[in-house]
Design a protein around this nucleic acid. Structure first.
Length: 280
DNA sequence: ATGGCAGCGTCACGCTGA
């Protein structure tokens, strides 16, 4: 079972890239962020025509998340209010379309597009911290159901110095402040662990390179796209990789896909051929 | 310290992202 996360910076602009990438991969479930399209205009048919199920939660111009799956998407939940009681703050923080989750082959997959925050003095930064605090309640509520949990997305936070190309200059600033890192760590809790760090402890591995200042050519990136696994899934993790080739294409997204491979037995879905079992 | 590049909505350029 392979699960991937990719901020595509407009699904309509990136549609051909995404379809080609899916065809050339063994990914079962792809979580998309920054689809930048209202639901009626989401290119669902392009995915369905290739045999994928899709669920999406979008808006015009900004934000937007989606799930693309070879298997069925069950119990789809949209926004924080898909999980939490809709009090005033939760509704306010669900206006921007940044959260979608579904049960896929028995795994609860949560797809997040965490606010960027703009700058430490911005009201958007305060919004980001509020949003992360709401995420904490959201994850605790989800964990009550005791499902194997995989939380993926664009977190817009480099958790540690090794996740930044220039930690001396960038640490403490937006996407690398103590308050953001603490809020994310608090939201994730004790059980969820970064799948990438189960396999790679070094620096120099990025998932996002700014379009500006030749960041890609200078390899000035950040690792802000993550996949977090509950402890039961950590034991089943076989690999976690960033496919940086996608950042090197014509008209690329500024993010590369992150992929985790889990040794998870797929449940037999009626009418769905997962491929034949080959005995020794 | 600032701007740089890209996408969107909508047609000249401002807003947003990270």
């Amino acid at each position: 079972m392979q699960i991937a996360s990719w901020n595509v910076n407009s699904i309509r602009t990136r549609l051909d890239h995404v379809l080609r990438w899916l065809e050339n991969s063994d990914v079962d479930l792809l979580a998309l962020q920054e689809t930048k399209v209202d639901d009626p205009l989401f290119p669902s048919e392009s995915f369905r025509a290739k045999g994928y199920n899709v669920s999406f939660h979008g808006q015009k111009s900004y934000n937007g998340v989606a799930l693309v799956s070879r298997h069925s998407l069950e119990d789809v939940r949209l926004g924080f209010t898909g999980e939490l009681t809709a009090d005033l703050q939760t509704e306010e923080l669900s206006q921007q379309k940044r959260v979608i989750s579904a049960l896929v082959d028995g795994i609860r997959v949560i797809n997040l597009y965490v606010p960027n925050g703009s700058s430490l003095k911005s009201e958007k930064y305060a919004y980001k911290l509020q949003w992360l605090s709401c995420l904490e309640r959201y994850l605790r509520a989800t964990q009550l159901r005791d499902e194997p949990l995989c939380v993926v997305g664009d977190f817009n936070i480099g958790p540690e110095a090794r996740d930044l190309h220039d930690p001396d200059r960038l640490s403490g600033g937006i996407m690398a402040s103590d308050a953001e890192r603490d809020a994310l760590s608090q939201a994730l809790g004790d059980d969820l662990k970064d799948a990438f760090r189960l396999f790679e402890s070094g620096s120099g591995h990025w998932s996002w390179w700014d379009y500006r200042s030749g960041a890609w050519n200078r390899d000035s990136g950040w690792r802000i796209d993550h996949i977090y696994l509950s402890s039961d899934l950590q034991e089943l993790a076989l690999s976690c990789k960033i496919d940086k080739r996608e950042r090197d294409r014509e008209q690329p997204s500024d993010h590369a896909p992150v992929i985790v491979d889990l040794s998870w037995e797929l449940e037999d879905e009626s009418g769905d051929d997962d491929g034949s079992f080959v005995a020794d």
